[in-house]
Amino acid sequence: MGKNGRYAMGLFLCCTAILLTAAPAIAQNGIDNGGHSWWFWPLLLFIVTFVMGILAVLGGVGGGVLFVPIISGFFPFHLDFVRGTGLLVALSGALAAGPGLLKANLASLRLAIPVALIASSCAIVGAMIGLALPTNVVQIALGATILGICILMLTAKKSTIPDVPEADKLSSALRIYGVYYEPSLKQNINWKVHRTPLGLCLFVIIGVMAGMFGLGAGWANVPVLNLLMGAPLKISVATSKFLLSITDTSAAWIYMNKGCVIPLMVVPSLVGIMLGSFVGVRLLKVAKPTFIRWMVIGILAFAGLKALQKGIFG
């Protein structure tokens, strides 16, 4: 990385550090004082989600999984509204990436459609459960899930091109297979999947969790598609992101029809995360310091503990 890149990266990291230590303090201050102008919280939301978008890209952690824990942990918004907004934020990220991934034939529609049916139906169930349960129960479940996600992120392996000896009957019947060009090997890779029924069962759980917590489920989709079902990592990542657009659509409607969407919150968050990820992608070309991933997972874990604290102690 050149001198300018180093300088920019250093400056950005300083700002992030200051912001992250200051934001909870500002938030707490806001809750105590209460007499802020109407634009205070939306603006803060925009700034925080902007940084979140950058960190999501640099840290290799989905923005959809960062939003709900961090915003519900440190902002005065009720978990109902945070989940509604979080689903819309994750949804728009998936909508932005979807067309490009589909056109490049990296996201596989044939793989996604059966999985999406399971996942989106279960997301509706998850949303219904999530809205019916008392908030503190959801907070505890959210906190525990977040901590589990952190552990998963730290330990999960990835398989660039898994070995799939034979496609299973279901995926053969549905003709779920494809081919893509792998530049590192300079050849076309034919791929197929196996253990499809087991994969679909796991997507039941993933769908319920996505609906219940308002999280983007990329952290779960990719391991199931890649490690369990054997799709190449590139196809898994692309299909997972596309899948989010369908899963989160169904859950978002449940939350929206329940009234859990406040426009004043939604737009700054959406714009913040999108702009943040564009900036993040530019920064990524310069460098990707490894400590950022640790830092982001650390922040996520902290947010998970905060959710547990809120749920247990109120």
Partner: peptide, 22 residues
């Protein structure tokens, strides 16, 4: 058929006929 089912599921979610409540 699967796509039609999915469209139905999503329309059902969007319709507001399914509600979860406190």
């Amino acid at each position: 058929v699967i796509a039609a089912l999915e469209a139905l599921v999503l329309i059902l979610a969007a319709s507001g006929l399914i509600t979860g409540g406190h």
